[in-house]
Design a protein around this nucleic acid. Structure first.
Length: 816
RNA sequence: AGGCCCGUAGCUCAGUUGGUUAGAGCACACGCUUGAUAAGCGUGGGGUCGACAGUUCAAAUCUGUCCGGGCCUACCA
């Protein structure tokens, strides 16, 4: 893309390309004969004038000198004496640029005078009879008899840019002739250089064109080839049925006039052609061409100007018989030719020579329909008979928060660099990846803050996964099988579904579909449901428990995919996460998206979990009411009574641990009629919930309420499940239980108490144990970018004693 | 002025061949939790689908007009 925007290099291959000579020169205004030196496929002699045609593009010289009164008579010699040559009719034409409410609707036409007049004239008369009254120097020519050599605008000295002598001379001549009816000054803005602000004038001048409607290749015209290539290329219409880019380029190619390729500029790539002075024929001679090509290979495109014509012409032609055309080539031709050196077939370009094994996609802003996409298409269709790309992807433009274009004078410019500095480049990437980039993109505080929050959610999820997977080993892995709980079957099924969505999204460049699917998965499936439910197993189950192993195995697959799927959008975050867990592995960016086994597809688990979650929503709704009524605080304080009318749903609920899903201490599922005041949701008829307080005592470890009579005598204040885990842990570490679970079993034993939760070690102070507070080993404030976890100063032994590994290694990003 | 587009909640987006009460996430408010804590969970409010007119039993969806916005219509890339 960038090459399309760069200034052309003079040494590029473009000058060689155009020697194919499928372009021609138009000089009809001075009645030149058709150029018989042209190749058969050249054309454009009768090119319609239009916005891209000669007269409309003049830059240097004023139209003032080609005042109608100064026109040469069309049917007589242009010069008839000192003040002669001005006796002719000026046609009055019906022009679109003059309306009948602002005037008569008719134009007193001066085709050498300006673009509109040129267009209306050529519509009626072709290019016959249009004089060239101004030369390249900005001076009147001999076709303005009596005023030859006068400057329109002064090009040098202290009055640079001011009126030259021509204007005054013409006015004086009109006065002398008694033909001046009125005079006055009008200030207007239009003809100024957009860049230098210098005044401009129009002039008409001979130009070179590439014909679009002349058959040249298998009897087809350039326009026909380009149009059929537009059908082949994927502008989005094949990928996702979006026709906007296809419509736009197609309309442009259908309607455009011949390609004006010559420019009167001091710099650029020369057309590098000779025209015979006697008849205007283009010199087509392989030996001459070879000399030009060789010289350019040696010295770049500048040699065209630096080398005498005779050196190129050799012994067969005389320099004085030829005009060495010094016009340069339209710079679009340069960028349109980029494929020639990128794809490397410039020596013998043909359709077959085009090397694009992987397919070629052009990516640029949607303004390039008029630019790079366009010129590349025409140039390549002419030289290779095919478009240089197989697909085109466009994007819109960055607007301000209101959707208005950014402008320095309005002061609504949002600079990407600032977002990168203030919020981080990943946020900007995420913002763009989640937007419909084909349309315009609004930039402002709201959307940046939003992307920021989304990023934090993703980062936090990854951070949690790192903690949850700390120490995960292959021996722990539980591949999907008969032992796999429904919850994990469902999670793998979700990964299977996501795999399809994400792959398709990337393949079709619909990045926001990948982002929204991933973000929604993290929020809705992982954070609000799966992880919330599985925290109990993760923290409290014994490491060998099937449930915990299934959970960690599934989370490992989640980790593997999330890091890969996010890598293209959040390259640094994905790498940081990956490297934190696998410091010796190659970069995350060298991975492919992990293959997802088809066996993970589990429609039964998907449907079953959908029903369960619907029923769960009724329970959480009921819990919310109980909470408002101060019956409970945490959900674990409740034991809901769930009335289920539908038998199959009831079986479904009973087949699994529904309390686990609802994160309550037990649950009672009943078939009978629910009390009238039971909680119901209109979306889920047939389910009604009454919240009861959970009986029993609170487990010191898992916080679940349980019947103390069921407790292991060795661990009276924790549930049997927790007792099993603690016993296993202690057996493995060979240390007395109460040394680490002191606060649980022997309050007041010391200043610090530790106990373990799954693979983690937690600690509390006496005060905290006595009071309500509970202090886990807090992740300390670390500089961004991570680092070693420094434990609080009073915990040094704890860490070494228990082999505590830092698991908060991916640090949160401060909210801004 | 013409060509190609865009307009659904405060924001980013879904919304199938027209068919239940227009959805999701974020944001916001309230509550819970304090073992993801610069975190986490729950509940809730919020939309005359840019406006108007038409076609239809039925329109965010089809048609027309208008309003607002963008790109292009450069001897800028």
């Amino acid at each position: 893309m960038c090459c399309a925007r760069r200034r052309p290099h003079r040494g590029s291959a473009c000058a060689i390309l155009i020697r194919a000579a499928w372009f021609s020169r138009i000089r009809s205004a001075i009645g030149e004969p058709p150029l018989d030196g042209e190749a058969p496929r050249s054309g454009g002699g009768g090119a319609p004038a239009s916005g891209e045609d000669a007269a409309s593009h003049g830059a240097i010289v004023n139209d003032g000198a080609s005042h109608p009164l100064s026109h040469a008579a069309r049917d007589s010699s242009p010069i008839e004496g000192e003040r002669g040559g001005y006796q002719f009719d000026v046609p009055l034409l019906d022009g679109d640029h003059v309306t009948d409410d602002a005037g008569t609707g008719f134009v007193h036409t001066a085709p050498g005078h300006g673009a509109d007049d040129f267009v209306i004239w050529t519509k009626h008369f072709g290019q016959e009879g249009i004089p060239f009254t101004v030369d390249a120097e900005g001076k009147l020519t001999n076709q303005a008899p009596g005023f030859e050599g006068l400057e329109i605008i002064q090009l040098e000295g202290k009055n640079l840019g001011k009126d030259g002598p021509a204007n005054k001379a013409v006015i004086e001549a009109l006065i002398a002739a008694g033909a001046l009816l009125a005079r006055g000054q009008l200030k207007h803005q239009y003809p100024h250089s957009w860049r230098s602000k210098a005044p401009l004038i129009f002039r008409n001048t001979p130009q070179w064109f590439i014909a679009l409607d002349k058959p040249f290749r298998d009897g087809k015209t350039l326009r026909q080839i380009a149009l059929s290539e537009i059908e082949r290329v994927d502008w989005g219409q094949h990928r996702w049925g979006a026709h906007k880019d296809y419509n736009r380029i197609k309309g442009m190619i259908e309607d455009r006039p011949d390609w004006l390729v010559s420019r009167q500029r001091a710099w650029g790539v020369p057309l590098a052609i000779f025209v015979r002075k006697s008849d205007g024929a283009l010199l087509m001679d392989d030996a001459v061409d070879a000399r030009i090509v060789d010289a350019m290979k040696q010295g770049g495109a500048d040699v065209w100007w630096a080398t005498p014509a005779q050196d190129f012409l050799g012994n067969d032609y005389k320099a004085e018989d030829f005009e060495k055309v010094e016009d340069i080539l339209d710079v679009w031709f340069d960028s349109g030719s980029t494929h020639a050196f990128v794809l490397g077939d410039r020596d013998a370009p043909t359709r077959a020579s085009f090397k694009n094994p992987e397919g070629v996609i052009y990516l640029e802003g949607s303004d390039q329909h008029r630019g790079w996409f366009h010129s590349s298409l025409l140039e390549s269709c002419a030289t290779r008979g095919r478009a240089p790309y197989d697909a085109v992807l466009t994007h819109g433009f960055a607007m301000d928060e209101e959707g208005k274009k950014m402008s320095k004078s309005v002061g609504n410019v949002v600079e990407p660099q600032k977002i990168a500095q203030q919020n981080g480049i990943e946020i900007l990437r995420l913002l763009i990846a989640s937007a419909e980039y084909g349309d315009d993109l609004r930039m402002g505080k709201t959307i940046i803050d939003q992307a920021s929050e989304t990023y934090r959610k993703l980062r936090n999820t990854l951070r949690y996964l790192l903690g949850a997977l700390n120490g995960f080993e292959e021996s722990e892995r539980l591949p999907k099988g008969e032992e796999t709980p429904l919850l994990e079957r469902w999670l793998l099924h979700r990964l299977y579904e996501l795999d399809g969505i994400v792959r398709k999204a990337y393949e079709t460049f619909q990045f926001r579909e990948a982002v929204s699917a991933i973000v929604e998965f993290c929020n809705v499936d992982l954070s609000a449901f799966y992880v919330d439910v599985r925290k109990d197993a993760l923290y409290c189950d014994a490491p060998a428990s099937v449930r915990r192993r299934a959970c960690r195995s599934a989370l490992d697959e989640v980790f593997s995919r999330l890091t890969a799927w996010l890598a293209p959008i959040l390259p640094f975050t994905a790498e940081e996460t990956w490297a934190t867990r696998f410091p010796s592995e190659p970069s995350v960016h060298l991975r492919l998206f992990p293959e997802t086994p088809a066996a993970w597809r589990d429609d039964f688990a998907g449907e079953e979990m959908a029903r369960l979650r619907e029923a769960r929503a009724v329970v959480t709704g009921a819990l919310e009411v109980a909470r408002r009524e101060k019956l409970i605080g945490a959900a674990l304080e409740a034991r809901p009574l769930v009335f289920v009318a539908d038998e199959s749903l009831r079986a479904c609920l009973e087949a699994i641990d529904f309390a686990e899903l609802c994160i309550t201490s037990g649950i009672n599922i009943k078939a009978g009629e629910a009390p009238a005041d039971a909680f119901r949701l209109s979306e889920t008829p047939g389910v009604a919930v009454v919240i009861e307080k959970a009986p029993g005592v609170k487990c010191a470890r898992s916080w679940k309420y349980f019947d103390p009579a069921s407790a292991d005598p060795r661990y009276p204040d924790i549930t049997p499940r927790d007792a099993e885990a603690v016993a296993a842990w202690d057996a493995r570490h060979g240390a007395p239980l109460d040394a680490r679970c002191g606060p649980v079993h022997k309050p007041g034993h010391g200043a610090l108490w530790s106990f373990h939760l799954g693979n983690r070690v937690c600690a509390r102070s006496d005060q905290q144990m006595a009071g309500a507070g509970r202090a886990e080993i807090q992740p300390a404030r670390l500089p961004r970018g991570g680092g070693e976890l420094p434990l609080p100063g009073n915990f040094p032994d704890l860490r070494s004693a228990h082999g505590l590994e830092p698991w908060h290694q991916l640090w949160p990003v401060p909210r801004r």
